[in-house]
Simulated assay, not measured.
Amino acid sequence: MNTAPALVVGLGCQRGCDVDTLLDLFNTTLKAHGIDRQRISALASIDRKQAEPGLLALAKLLNLPLRFFSAEQLMAYTSRLSHKSAAAYAHTGCHGVAESAALALAEQLGQLPATLLITRQKIARATFALACTG
């Protein structure tokens, strides 16, 4: 039985955000927190981003599964977010994509309650969060 915690990165991005921007945010944030990128189990986002070229390219480049959740599924995590964005809600129907997607997938993979290890990190065109179980 694998007891290693599930480490999941949640990502949000503006339409057309390129893979280099997402990769830089991914690498910079993990490095700043001393986390080896090999420890990441999967990527998560909102289902509205299923065809977003930058996200799909990042998952392929990192060789990680990318899972998507509906706004309704992500709304269940609103009370656990470090930041509730009115702009995110207006565009997506949930109060935060990166954090809620990370929590949702970490709990799905780990079969345990998840916590945010890295809260929302925002750059001009994208957001990053890291959740873990265990």
Rank of each mutant, 00 (worst) to 15 (best):
A87H: 13
S45I: 03
F68S: 09
E107C: 04
N63T: 12
L81I: 06
T3W: 11
G16Y: 06
N27I: 04
L62M: 01
G96R: 07
L43R: 01
L130S: 02
H95Y: 14
R125P: 03
R80N: 10
A71N: 00
A6D: 14
S70K: 02
R125K: 15
L22S: 06
F128Y: 06
S45Y: 00
A44R: 02
D20F: 05
Q73Y: 02
G93D: 04
S85G: 04
T78V: 06
G110W: 03
T115Q: 11
H95G: 08
A57C: 03
D24C: 12
L56K: 08
A44E: 09
Q111T: 13
G10D: 06
P113W: 06
S41A: 14
T92H: 10
A114T: 01
R48V: 10
G10Q: 03
L25F: 10
R80Q: 15
Q38L: 11
P5F: 09
T28V: 09
P113T: 13
C132W: 13
A114G: 09
L11Q: 02
K60I: 07
S79K: 14
N2L: 12
A88E: 06
Q50P: 11
Q121S: 08
T78G: 05
T3A: 12
G34H: 11
K84W: 00
A126Q: 05
I123G: 09
L130N: 00
A6V: 06
C13G: 10
D47M: 00
C13H: 08
V97A: 09
R125G: 10
Y89G: 07
S45A: 09
V19I: 08
L62Q: 03
A126Y: 01
G54S: 15
P53I: 03
D47H: 03
D36T: 12
G10S: 08
F128S: 00
A101V: 07
S70Y: 03
S85T: 03
T28P: 07
I35C: 02
C13E: 05
S79F: 08
A129V: 03
L130H: 04
A4F: 15
T78Y: 04
A102S: 12
P5H: 09
G110A: 09
L22H: 01
A126G: 03
